[in-house]
Amino acid sequence: MNNMTTSAQDGAPVSLSPGRIALRRAFRHGGFWIGGTIILAIILIAIFAPLLTPYDPSVQSLSKGFVPPVWAKDGSWLHPLGTDNLGRDYLARLLYGARISLGLALLTVIISGTIGTAMGITAGYWGGWPDMIINFFITVRLTLPVVLVALVVVALIGSSLWLLILVIGLLLWDRFAIVVRSATQQLAQREYITSARAIGSSTPRILFREILPNITGPLVVVASIEIAHAILLEAALSFLGLGVQPPDVSWGLMVAEAKAQLLFRPWMIAIPGAALVLLIFAINLVGDALRDVTTPEGKA
């Protein structure tokens, strides 16, 4: 009807970068705070585990097996969460278990994130044949059952922590690849990428300076999902006896070892189980918050 009006947008000052705005919004998000606090607490516990307990998590003392936790009859503050069948302090095992669960998840996600991002960017930026081939790889990867493949490899090669990290890392890149691919596809059609090409920017420069920074939003969201995924996978493998091996300790392993006590000492399953649920829950909260704040349209 008229073309004279120019929309005068009042709102945030223009100087803030999208990343800063997302960060700002994140700090106003309730879920981000709750989840973030829990994760930070667990990270601190993992780092300072030796200072928090006088016990070594793997030292056995058979005479002191199955000491009940402090709230039960005969419990004492000497072993607040009691001891397991081999007399190892349960609190110490819980605190040290956080180390493996978190550390392993972080390392696997670094591996899978690198693989998935590289594949996703390649497929999304170039399209055509590379895209078809990478798509095929993604399909094949999704077709392989994760738990089973990990079990087979670990069982046949022999379980070690590094192998576990490598195997899980090599298995969980699919979501990274899928998300990064579609994000890159969208970016590659934008004008500023086209103009960067037009002024003769080198391909690596476009990829690292223009594309990579602009897909950090979805990348961080996927990373949070995959960290949770890796923790769950490690726990499941350890539960089946083919993940973390003694004397190392992880929460999944603790649940596995306490399985026989389901009838008489269910808390021995509940304690590491609750720790696992709390950690995953916190990661999911932060992940959801990040998804909310990095989606340009906001929560609507």
């Binding site: 008229n2 004279m4 009006t5 120019t6 929309s7 005068a8 009042d10």
Partner: peptide, 8 residues
């Protein structure tokens, strides 16, 4: 025209 535009 300007006056109306500032209405947003």
């Amino acid at each position: 025209a300007q006056g109306a535009a500032t209405h947003g």
